[in-house]
Deep mutational scan, measured.
Amino acid sequence: LEELEQFARTFKQRRIKLGFTQGDVGLAMGKLYGNDFSQTTISRFEALNLSFKNMCKLKPLLEKWLNDAE
């Protein structure tokens, strides 16, 4: 759980530094990986307001997006 919290904080910082909005991330993930995510989902991930199971599902996709975006 602590690792997920740390990743969520780091993800938000890096996303902002790269100049992407939460909506940009959701749209890009849909185009790149075929998984559409709303701005609300990205927001809830960053705020740790998703279930642990959903956080675990999203983490690898967000890590991949972040690596591809950098």
Rank of each mutant, 00 (worst) to 15 (best):
L1E: 06
E2Q: 05
E3Y: 06
L4F: 09
L4V: 08
L4E: 02
L4R: 02
L4Q: 04
E5M: 15
E5Q: 09
Q6Y: 09
Q6S: 13
F7R: 00
F7Y: 04
F7W: 07
A8R: 04
A8C: 14
R9S: 10
R9N: 09
T10S: 12
T10W: 05
T10E: 14
F11T: 02
F11N: 00
K12W: 03
K12S: 12
Q13C: 06
R14M: 09
R14L: 07
R14N: 14
R14I: 03
R14S: 13
R15N: 01
R15H: 00
I16S: 08
I16F: 05
I16V: 11
I16D: 06
K17W: 06
K17G: 11
K17T: 08
L18M: 14
G19R: 06
G19M: 03
G19S: 06
F20V: 06
F20P: 00
F20W: 09
T21G: 06
Q22C: 13
Q22H: 09
Q22L: 12
Q22M: 10
G23C: 11
G23S: 12
G23R: 13
D24K: 04
D24H: 09
V25R: 01
V25E: 00
V25G: 00
G26E: 12
G26H: 06
G26Q: 15
G26K: 06
L27A: 15
L27E: 09
L27W: 07
A28T: 14
M29C: 08
G30W: 12
G30D: 09
G30K: 08
K31T: 11
K31C: 10
L32F: 07
L32C: 08
L32S: 13
N35W: 12
N35D: 07
D36I: 09
F37Y: 10
F37C: 09
S38M: 07
Q39M: 12
Q39V: 13
T40H: 05
T40A: 10
T40F: 11
T40I: 03
T41A: 10
T41V: 14
S43V: 07
S43I: 12
S43F: 04
R44F: 04
R44W: 03
F45C: 01
F45D: 00
F45G: 00
A47T: 14
L48M: 11
L48N: 12
L48P: 02
N49K: 13
L50F: 09
L50R: 01
L50I: 11
L50C: 08
S51W: 00
S51M: 03
F52I: 11
K53A: 13
K53P: 09
K53H: 14
K53L: 12
N54R: 13
C56E: 13
K57S: 09
L58Q: 04
K59F: 05
K59R: 08
K59T: 05
P60N: 04
P60A: 06
L62D: 00
E63A: 03
K64Q: 14
K64F: 04
W65Y: 06
W65D: 02
W65H: 02
L66R: 01
D68C: 10
D68F: 15
A69W: 06
A69R: 13
E70P: 03
E70H: 03
E70I: 04
E70C: 07
